[in-house]
């Protein structure tokens, strides 16, 4: 485990004002409300927190709503996140948390694609490859230490 923090003093950003979703008209019982950007963001926002700090990923601007692409019809989600520092070794853990969270929260028809924002990490390609390799993710999740850490991040904090 890490003995000292990778980014000891991160910049905290103010949370963006949550836009209020217009209440869906209850008139049509059978209308379909597609899964959209905001919903994915809500899933990620409510639960995941930073592995190092007691802040949510939103407050650290690791993920923002604009960095999520969703195609409900074709069942595809792409999340692009920005690690706080370039050499952040936590990037893979954050990515893994996002992946696990989405796996648990989205219907199985979705393919989840997780990427580090271009230019935001020293070993960008390696991280991307690691995060999107099925076998490697499965292997990582069999490591009790990793799972413990992921679950720790996914525990709702409900501030």
């Amino acid at each position: 485990m890490v003995s000292e923090l990778i980014n000891a003093n991160p910049v905290i950003y103010e949370k963006k004002e949550r836009r209020v979703r217009s209440v869906p008209s209850t008139a049509d019982e059978y209308a379909v409300e597609p899964i959209d950007q905001e919903e994915i963001f809500d899933i990620l926002f409510v639960y995941i927190k930073d592995p190092e700090h007691p802040y949510s990923l939103e407050e650290l601007k690791v993920i923002s709503e604009d960095a999520i692409e969703v195609d409900d019809g074709r069942g595809h989600v792409r999340v692009t996140f920005t690690p706080t520092v370039e050499h952040c070794s936590m990037a893979t853990v954050i990515g893994l948390c996002i992946r696990v969270k989405l796996l648990r929260s989205l219907p199985s028809r979705f393919k989840v694609d997780i990427r580090v924002a271009p230019g935001s990490h020293a070993t960008e390609a390696a991280v991307n490859k690691q995060l999107n390799d099925k076998e490697r993710v499965a292997a990582a999740l069999e490591n009790p230490n990793v799972v413990e850490m992921v679950d720790e991040c996914l525990t709702p904090s409900y501030e």
Binding site: P24, Y30, A31, E33, I35, E39, L106, P107, S108, R109
Partner: peptide
């Protein structure tokens, strides 16, 4: 299955 429900 409910994760794929039409309603949010």
């Amino acid at each position: 299955k409910a994760l794929d429900d039409p309603k949010r």
